[in-house]
Simulated scan of single mutants.
Amino acid sequence: MLDSLIRFVRDQYHTDEFIPLHAPVFRGRERELVVDTIDSTFVSSVGAYVDRFEKDMAAFTASPRAVAVMNGTAALHIALKLADVVPGDLVVTQSLTFVATCNAIAYCSAEPLFVDVDRHTLGLSPTALDAWLSEHALIDDRGDCRTRVGHRRIRACLPMHTFGHPVELDALIAVCERWHLVLVEDAAESLGSYYKGRHTGNFGRIGVLSFNGNKIMTTGGGGMLLTDEVIGKRAKHLTTTAKIPHPYEFVHDEVGYNYRMPNLNAALGCAQLEQLPAFLESKRVLAERYIEFFKGSDLQPIVEPEGCHSNYWLNGVICQDGAQRDALLKSTNDAGVMTRPIWALMTRLPLYTNALRGPLDNAEWLEARVVNLPSSVLPAGA
């Protein structure tokens, strides 16, 4: 099976050379727009491409406002600040995630509260969240959600749409409303994914995208906040050093952040966004081929949840056990076909070992079994 998988992957990418997990593709006007930025001399935080990229991304995601920043982690940090997360607060999130999700919470001097994921979405479980809150939390006289022991405020809920697969948003929204939690979506991996016809990142107070080099489209490094006009205006102010517009004076009215996306990166993003529909189509073709390949095998391909349209950013399989997972990882990587295990649980990292948590049975089960497969956009004509 493993030899046939290696051959299958090589057939998709038409090469016997090393195959990365997810590489960027530059087939459009990237060079033209980047050179235009260089020629204009506006390569830093001021330039027409930043405004254009924000408007084009807002249109693509059908979001009222999009605000570009330097990376996805910066976007998460600002999103949590705009959700009024303050030092000492708890933020509900999943332990099965990339570390940036939790680091952004720490930037606010808050702490993560880990609940389990659902196996069919790999994302935060509304059922697990409601169960933990029902046993350990209450709503105080001011309407805040607090822990029964210690009376710590639980301010926000930060799910991640793992590998581009949306979480159970309807049920999660209902739990957040019942427990007075602000929903912030970590949609870093889900550009081009839809939950019941609506783009991810548009369900909470704020959603966050990432354009890192390994994402479905890239600006080299970059992120985006999706939100409404009022919060978007505030986000733009905070991420541009809280500077009051003036023809020549330097006036800053609060502590701001130099999180601006450079015009050079935005130009790359504009060119990539022009190709995004084709990228998404290619990745669905690849996902369908993987699903067909694994039919009848003891490796279970990860598929989009019912009612969702996933971008299939990273394809993956669920192995029967850790031994099979390790054999798959060794065989493919030894053959020059990059595969990777899912992240180690955040609760295993020394910085989050002592965080509050509920049972993490599903997260632990997936951690021991999930392997990601090469998922780059297919070569032209493949």
Rank of each mutant, 00 (worst) to 15 (best):
S134L: 15
E135R: 13
H136F: 01
H136A: 09
L138Q: 14
I139A: 10
D140K: 03
D140S: 05
D141E: 12
D141M: 11
G143Y: 06
G143R: 03
D144M: 13
R146T: 03
T147K: 09
T147F: 00
T147I: 04
T147P: 02
R148W: 00
R148F: 02
R148C: 08
V149M: 07
G150F: 11
G150K: 07
H151Q: 14
H151C: 11
H151M: 15
R152G: 11
R152K: 04
R152M: 10
R153V: 10
R153K: 08
I154N: 01
I154F: 03
I154G: 05
R155V: 14
A156E: 05
C157F: 09
C157V: 09
L158F: 06
L158M: 12
P159E: 02
P159I: 00
M160W: 00
M160D: 07
H161A: 11
H161K: 03
H161V: 01
T162M: 08
T162N: 10
F163I: 08
G164N: 10
G164D: 04
G164A: 06
H165W: 09
V167L: 06
V167H: 04
V167T: 09
E168S: 09
E168R: 05
L169A: 06
L169S: 04
D170E: 13
A171K: 01
A171S: 10
A171C: 01
A171F: 01
I173T: 08
I173G: 08
I173Q: 10
I173M: 13
A174F: 12
A174T: 13
A174W: 13
V175C: 02
V175G: 04
V175P: 08
C176T: 07
C176N: 06
C176K: 10
E177L: 13
R178C: 11
R178L: 08
W179Y: 14
W179D: 08
H180Q: 15
L181E: 00
L181N: 08
V182Y: 01
V182L: 02
L183Q: 07
L183K: 12
E185C: 14
E185T: 13
D186Y: 03
A187S: 11
A187F: 05
A188G: 00
A188Y: 02
E189I: 00
S190R: 01
L191M: 13
L191K: 08
L191V: 05
L191F: 12
G192N: 14
Y194P: 03
Y194K: 15
K196F: 12
K196Y: 05
K196R: 13
G197L: 04
R198P: 10
H199P: 00
T200V: 09
T200M: 12
T200P: 00
T200Q: 08
N202K: 10
F203M: 06
F203Q: 01
F203S: 05
F203P: 01
G204W: 00
R205M: 14
R205G: 14
I206W: 15
I206H: 13
I206L: 12
I206V: 14
G207C: 07
G207W: 06
L209G: 00
S210A: 13
S210D: 09
S210M: 02
